[in-house]
């Protein structure tokens, strides 16, 4: 069984937000909310500055606190791709998952349920990449099966220096950022 993950090359990313805009149109994300976003971290002093740009979203963690804390079972790990999803019908909008997620990846949809990145499962099931990956003009994003050592994502993680967000949270996130 596949275990989907994402690799994002911060060397190439320019933080243009195309991933954010593409997600919004692809998934009809309501105004004022987003399922992915850009963070920038500036370090150093002029002229020895260093800027790290990260395109962020739900990390589809291997140890997802949003799933363990969910009182109704709405937040769950789907078999296909081990992707973390929310069953809108079961969700009561209690926000426990919003508090549990160390990445701030979730929001309450105006229709009353917790919403977040789905890794565009409706596209992946058809053999397409997630909308953010497909739109990126710098081609800095990769999507694939982390359990397949031959996949592009596995090869990139094996060969390039990389980091994950908040490794100390113990969530074992599945979005890897290349340095």
């Amino acid at each position: 069984m596949a275990r989907f993950g994402m690799v994002i090359d911060t060397k190439k990313c320019v933080g243009c937000m195309d991933c954010v805009v593409a997600c919004k149109t692809e998934n009809d994300v309501p105004d004022g909310h987003c399922r992915d976003w850009i963070s920038q971290r500036l370090q150093g002093e002029m002229p020895d500055l260093r800027l790290t740009i990260t395109s962020e979203r739900c990390n589809h963690c291997d140890s997802p606190p949003c799933v363990t804390c969910c009182p109704t079972g709405a937040s769950h790990v789907q078999d296909f791709g081990k992707v973390v999803l929310v069953d809108h019908g079961k969700c009561i909008g209690c926000k426990a998952c919003l508090a549990a997620c160390p990445y701030g990846a979730r929001f309450i949809h105006p229709d009353g349920y917790a919403d977040k990145c789905t890794f565009c499962m409706h596209r992946v099931e058809r053999g397409l990449a997630p909308a953010c990956v497909d739109v990126c003009p710098t081609r800095c994003m990769y999507f694939g099966d982390l359990d397949d050592p031959e996949s592009e994502v596995s090869r990139l993680i094996a060969t390039r220096r990389h980091f994950v967000l908040k490794p100390d949270a113990g969530t074992r996130p599945r979005i890897f950022y290349l340095e």
């Binding site: 937000m17 195309d18 805009v21 593409a22 149109t25 497909d134 739109v135 003009p137 081609r139």
Partner: peptide, 11 residues
């Protein structure tokens, strides 16, 4: 565009 619009075009 090689199949990829910029954020403005996407929006």
């Amino acid at each position: 565009c090689q199949g990829r619009l910029c954020p403005r075009g996407t929006g």
